[in-house]
Nucleic acid binder design. Structure first.
Lengths: 186, 186
DNA sequence: TTTTGCACTTACTTATTAGTAAGTATATTT
DNA sequence: AAATATACTTACTAATAAGTAAGTGCAAAA
């Protein structure tokens, strides 16, 4: 695959995760990469096209992470920690996650990007629900409510924590992170 | 105060809470209200001006809610339920809350709107932290972590739940809502 | 009755947006 | 050596954005 294409994808993702979908433009990418506007249209005919490609990349990354954890037979606690690391890393880099960056603009997205984003959220929630359920059976996690609601609470917390940490310069992210884990301790 | 001005404020808020700050335009408001673009500039010279006014309105509404609950000497559990109702109502109306609508676009906002939004988030978190802390002392709530982290988890959950419910058409919001309360039951 | 102020409209500017059609240099294939 | 494909650039268009300056109708005040 083309190097320029990959650079566009990477920069596009970063722009979505910092400025948001509706605030970033092809200009932002072209000036940064020292290419012309039309060069981006060569690889991604429309913004819709670029958007979906970025979401699809993220879906793939998530799938690879899950596959990797399964093949290495990681325990539930370890899997949760690896998942949470996505967010501590994003927090360090002052970025939202792709879900938290795109979901607020959901109604302004085109149908393809909407569908991909929905698929991604469903995948993550299904995986997390399953992880929590399994972990509780094995007495690794402890919680009272149903696994799906608990998964929604945890995922929502993570998504918005990255948004709020941009607003509050001094957020105790480590304390937040630890509290999520503590809440699950038996 | 002018009726038109209030209509602009109300519609502007709804637009931010559905389309997002960077996706809505003065055109959206003027066509809906049957007035000209420049009429909005008459009341709100710049979009920045309108944005901050909307946030300030929301801050005031929150302050009034807290004052009201204090003067009526509502208990901690009742106060939490009233607070949560803001989100069940938003969910019913397919809207995000103002924090969840603006936070993702934080870096693209002007300094005044940034400051107001930050102030609002700080106010909500401080109030919720205090409520959780007091409620725990009185054995009304039960949780293991520190009140501030717990407040951040709950508030984040609420903020992002409205974003995710736009993405997932079929979200069990009642289950989610109940789980937040169940997590705090002694 | 004149003046002043309010609540706008008319008519515009400037900037930025996504997107396109046609051209060009370079490397690869035939 | 000629043809073709790749990876772009040049040079645009049409739409939409925020914002402004000057004008207008009307009601209240002087």
């Amino acid at each position: 695959m083309s190097v320029t294409r990959e650079k566009i994808l990477e920069l596009g993702e970063n722009l979505i995760r910092t400025k948001g979908y509706n605030a970033f433009s092809y200009q932002d990418i072209s000036t940064e990469l020292g290419i012309k506007n039309a060069a981006i249209h060569y690889y991604f005919p429309s913004k819709e096209n670029l958007g979906t490609s970025i979401v699809k990349t993220n879906i793939q990354r998530f799938e690879e992470m899950v596959e990797n954890m399964n093949s290495r037979k990681f325990g539930e606690w370890q899997q949760l920690e690896i998942f949470l690391k996505i967010y501590t890393k994003s927090h360090r880099e002052n970025k939202k996650c792709i879900v938290g960056a795109l979901s607020p603009d959901y109604f302004t997205l085109n149908e393809t990007t909407k569908r991909d984003l929905r698929r991604m959220v469903e995948m993550i929630l299904a995986w997390l629900t399953d992880l929590l359920d399994k972990g509780r059976s094995k007495k690794i996690f402890s919680f009272n409510n149903d696994p799906e609601s608990k998964a929604t609470i945890i995922f929502s917390s993570l998504v918005a924590s990255l948004q709020l940490s941009a607003v509050l310069d001094k957020i105790d992210y480590k304390g937040f992170y630890q509290s999520i884990l503590d809440d699950l301790k038996p």
